[in-house]
Amino acid sequence: MIVIIDYGVGNLFSLKSSFGAIGAEAVVSGEPEIIRQAEKIILPGVGAFEEAAEKLRATGLDRVIREETAKGKPLLGICLGMQLLFDRSYEFGDWEGLGLIHGSVRPIREVIPEDLKIPHIGWNPLIFKKETPLFGRIQEGDCVYFVHSFYGTDCDDVIATAEYGAELTAAVQKDNVYGCQFHPEKSGEAGLNILRAFCYDI
């Protein structure tokens, strides 16, 4: 069973549906007990880093996530959920993340030319950086759907980037902890193949 962590951030309908489409059983829950029983965990997220990190702390789910991933349980963070895995974020301040991926989250604006639009929104091809089972069912150059204004950096665990005036972190992996800046549940067949790999090959 896969548990999609519900901590009151964003709408999880599409994400849950995407697991249904690949024949995987996914449950949406914010209950620590259910998350502890899961075989794999999805950490979603949209909106502001500060609020999301605060909600994880207030509900004690930050501790549950740290404990479960320390046991080797696979976790996939998506979009803001990926950024929350980092040590810290400089999104309108300086906020502490889960520290499961070493690095920080910074504004895209700092590294891309003036004339490029923020947010980075749309379909962009993946550039592979490291071997990973997460991409076992897709090809380099497959496009995935991004919507974000901040990006992960100072990080040794980048497994893919996307070019948008600079090479922006698209995905990370450290052992059993995975993260996608893009939305696999909105990335057509390529996205579903990434979720299939997470469900069936990891």
């Binding site: 709408n11 549906s17 909105k186 996205g191």
Partner: peptide, 27 residues
């Protein structure tokens, strides 16, 4: 939204933030 996994935009008859909530809840 249950069967198509690309971004979906909805328009028409959107007059209030409740209308936003209504269509966002559907995916």
């Amino acid at each position: 939204a249950r069967s198509v996994f690309i971004p979906l935009t909805v328009g028409g008859g959107i007059n209030t933030t409740d209308d936003f909530a209504r269509v966002l809840a559907c995916g």
